[in-house]
Design a protein around this nucleic acid. Sequence first.
DNA 1: GATACTGTTAACTTTGTGGTTAACGATCCG
DNA 2: CGGATCGTTAACCACAAAGTTAACAGTATC
Lengths: 104, 104
Amino acid sequence: MVNDPFKALSHPIRRGIVERLAAGPATVGDATGGFGVSKPAISKHLKVLEETGVVTRAVEGRTHRLSLEPDALSEAADWMDRQRALWGRLFDVVDEYLKEEAPQ
Amino acid sequence: MVNDPFKALSHPIRRGIVERLAAGPATVGDATGGFGVSKPAISKHLKVLEETGVVTRAVEGRTHRLSLEPDALSEAADWMDRQRALWGRLFDVVDEYLKEEAPQ
DNA sequence: GATACTGTTAACTTTGTGGTTAACGATCCG
DNA sequence: CGGATCGTTAACCACAAAGTTAACAGTATC
């Protein structure tokens, strides 16, 4: 039950798959080759990405065509913007705090 | 051994602690009350945050004063900027791709 | 000195995650 | 049809994460 984008993107292989699919749709083999893990492992990562809605799959004969889903992507991007904004705000506050402490 | 900020910040309680500390340093009790978990659980979350360098601790008598560490914060913010930039780029590419497909 | 308070460590349990091998389903192709 | 290919599911293992209770260390307070 992974539907938190923070978790879905917390694994380097999954981020790698997304990066590859950014160049356009690809089959499972093309999108996931070279990660150095077995096919079942890949299959599980794809499942996680599908559950978050970031990746969709179209079965074409014996191959599966993977695509990025822009709606979910934009949601994830928005979410990341909010996170970033939070961090930025925190940083400003701490920075301010440190400036007050500095002259000691 | 957690030193990946994506992982360190992947837990809502840890994000909550950081948000509270953004208002200024606080004792463990003040910074972590109301999360509905036991004290040892809190203690572990603090350990994780310390290991990433995001939070520092100063023992003052029997209380511990927690502070945010701006250097680590700014590192984390930079890292998040890079992630966001990646997502933005991916989104643009996919958007472009969809525009070409649209007139079908 | 006894007691209360702040917070940690130790030991344990449960759950989730990421990986494996083995087997299978479905499709393509000789 | 028979074999190769693409990818999945099933069953299992190892390990990390998050929580618990119980006990403790150190400090403040009466």
